Computed example of a mutant assay.
Amino acid sequence: MSASRSIAGFTLLEMLVVLVIIGLIASLVGPRLFSRVDSSKVQIAETQTRLLRGAIETFRLEVGRIPTAEEGLAVLSTAPSDERAKARWRGPYLDEAVPNDPWGRPYKYSIPGRDGMPFAIYSLGADGQPGGEGNDADVGFLPPKS
Rank of each mutant, 00 (worst) to 15 (best):
I21M: 15
Q43I: 10
N135I: 12
I66H: 13
M1H: 11
N100Y: 07
R90G: 05
G72I: 09
I21K: 07
Y109N: 05
R36M: 15
E133N: 12
D95P: 02
A55H: 03
P102R: 02
G128Y: 05
L12Q: 03
T68A: 10
G91M: 07
A8E: 13
D138N: 15
Q129T: 13
P106W: 08
G113F: 02
S39G: 04
D115K: 15
A26M: 13
T47N: 13
A137I: 07
E14N: 10
I44H: 04
E14R: 12
A8G: 10
D127C: 06
R105C: 05
S4H: 08
I22G: 04
L142G: 01
L13C: 01
M1C: 09
R65K: 14
A69Y: 05
G140R: 04
R60H: 12
D115F: 13
F59T: 04
S6A: 10
P102E: 01
K108E: 11
A69D: 11
G9M: 04
A26H: 08
D82H: 07
Q43T: 14
L19V: 15
S77Q: 13
L12G: 02
G113S: 08
V139H: 00
Y107I: 08
G104F: 10
E14L: 09
D82A: 07
P130H: 05
A97R: 12
S40C: 02
L19Q: 09
R114M: 11
N135F: 02
V42F: 03
S40E: 08
D95Q: 13
V139C: 00
L61Q: 13
S123G: 08
R114Y: 06
L73P: 06
K145H: 09
A3Y: 00
V29I: 15
P106N: 07
G9S: 06
R36I: 14
L94S: 04
G113L: 06
G64A: 05
D95F: 06
V42N: 04
G23W: 05
